[in-house]
Amino acid sequence: MEPVIEIRNLHAEYRAGREKTIALKGITLSAYKGEIFGFIGPNGAGKTTTINILLGFMYPTNGNAVIFGEKSSSLKNRFRIGYLPEIAYYYPFLTPFKILTMYGKLFRIDKAILNNRIDSVLATVGLTEKKNTPVRNLSKGMSQRLGLAQAIINDPEVLILDEPNSGLDPIGKREMRDIILGLKNKGKTIFFSSHQLSEVELICDRVGIIDRGQILKTEKLDQIVGKIHTKQTVLEDIFIRMIKDKRT
């Protein structure tokens, strides 16, 4: 299969004054075309740092990240990528329509096409009725849906979702899951970070487990879980066991 996202020997560190924190210690992984790749790990494991490097928000100290065969953060790539941040905040004074118009214009989408696209993505995430409500008046769940709407406004080939279920109620989670599966069915590649393992288990094709800046395993979900397990808590058990083994 053709890898869309390739991360090779990625190292990263944070500096706060003289203090240095190593965030990534040489991680390597790949996500293939048309799959949902679940990137899982406990809080502070390095998931968001990896995504930040993929999008060019941060610079690695070593290694590289490639999307579609070129530097992940290149301008060309950004036309093909959609990104949903972990905590999505949008300009509170703007309405979803205006936000999507602004982002759409950054993708240089033609005005007539953009208006139709906005209506379509708002319908996809269920925000049609809130089209002209200022963001400051939207609930957290609605903001998260708006986040997803802005991530798909350019009809991207790759979606990078950082904790897409964070702050959502069970109904919201279900709807988000359906939207993600719908996007997969359209042939999108989805790179999906989460620590909500039940969600990952339900939608991912492959998973990468990360802890303390190191990849513990990257495999197909059914290979990790194995054939002996049948119930939904399985991934969680394996995950906890793996983390404990590594730390001890």
């Binding site: 949008y90 950054l106 986040g147």
Partner: peptide, 14 residues
């Protein structure tokens, strides 16, 4: 601080 920069900088914007 308001983290609005993240969705923005993920767009084709130098």
């Amino acid at each position: 601080n308001s983290r609005t920069i993240y969705p923005l900088m993920a767009k084709p914007l130098k």
